[in-house]
């Protein structure tokens, strides 16, 4: 049983504890008294405000986003909100104001039509400097063992090598992340290749397959692309398809040629482009090479750096490029 005294002692006890603990704790750094994550200059913070940056699910993009976000945050005083979204959802974000910028766009004619042409909520912000290559790849050990395998004409000869439990007697050809539009099924048919397209379902699955293929010397062939950090770990060999000519892929059922080279570009919301935010200026000027991106991507993916660490390392090593991006 609790005595009445205890009841009355309660508040007193509380008061004593509060004062003593507060007194004891004095002397620590106060929130807001020094810079923690807040911007250094308050004037530019006002000018920039919140910058909503979409981050699409591949590491190359993450590298772009890491560097742009790092600069926007530390040099421009923006509050950067990174949003991890698939491409389609990112574009959807332009119309709702959830997303200000996409830094690496791979074509997407359908989305361009929907959001730039029809809804007029997004606009092109110029090339990112990266050149996209999509195509068929094999691990380097295989290309070394069978030099002629890097031409699609010779693939049927090796189809048996690629047989797996998933490929129903044919050679297995691995397709990756479902976000990418591929012509592979049509290509198999039209090039009369004895391969079955097997959908691995994610980039992670695809990379694991290539990585295990190389380390265990297990033949693998599949769809891949650059720029991509994994290529700096395992230098996959590109398999040549009949050369791409303009319009050879218009009818997806009859396509029998390689994928087109991509000029990767940036897309922003119209609202962002007209906001006068210094972040818009940065995004507009941002442009770098495949090697730049692969390097930062490697920092993140292989060296396990955080985005900010990776970005800082690259930014510190490349002051000229950064300066150019921030100019007028």
């Amino acid at each position: 049983m609790v005595s009445k005294g205890a009841k009355r002692r309660g508040p007193l006890l509380l008061l004593i504890v509060v004062t003593s603990l507060v007194l004891a704790a004095c002397g620590g750094t106060k929130v807001g008294s020094s810079n923690s994550a807040a911007p250094t200059t308050s004037t530019s913070a006002k000018a920039c405000g919140t910058f909503n940056l979409a981050v699409n699910p591949w590491v190359g993009y993450e590298a772009d986003a890491a560097v742009v976000a790092y600069i926007a945050q530390t040099k421009l005083g923006c509050t950067v909100v990174k949003k991890n979204l698939s491409e389609e959802i990112s574009w959807q974000g332009f119309s709702t104001g959830e997303v200000d910028a996409v830094l690496e766009n791979w074509g997407h004619a359908d989305l361009v039509k929907k959001y730039i042409t029809d809804q007029k909520v997004a606009q092109d912000a110029g090339p990112s400097g990266n050149k996209g290559v999509i195509g068929w790849y094999v691990p380097p050990f295989l290309a070394a063992a069978h030099p002629d395998i890097v031409d699609s004409k010779n693939l049927n000869k090796y189809a048996n090598l690629f047989k797996t439990s998933e490929s129903g007697g044919k050679g297995a050809f691995l397709d990756g992340d479902p976000s990418y539009v591929t012509n592979d099924e049509a290509l198999m048919k039209n090039l009369k290749l004895n391969f079955k397209v097997v959908y691995t379902g994610s980039e992670a699955a695809l990379i694991t397959a290539f990585r295990n293929g190389q380390t265990q010397k297990k033949p693998v062939i599949g769809y891949f692309y650059e720029p991509q950090w994994f290529l700096s770990e395992v230098a996959l060999k590109h398999v040549a398809l009949p050369a791409y000519t303009a319009g050879c892929d218009t009818d997806p059922k009859k396509v029998a040629c390689d994928y087109p080279p991509y000029e990767l570009n940036k897309v922003v919301s119209v609202k962002f482009a007209t906001s006068g935010s210094p972040a818009w200026n940065l995004v507009k000027n941002f442009s770098w090479t495949n090697d730049d991106q692969n390097l930062v991507a490697k920092y993140i993916a292989q060296d396990k750096m955080t985005d900010d660490q990776a970005a800082k390392k690259w930014v510190d090593a490349n002051p000229d490029k950064v300066k150019a991006w921030m100019a007028g």
Binding site: L13, L14, V18, L21
Partner: peptide, 15 residues
Amino acid sequence: VTRSTKWLGLAITLV
């Protein structure tokens, strides 16, 4: 939990 312990807990939490 006795009442005074409750008060103590509350006090510590508030601090």
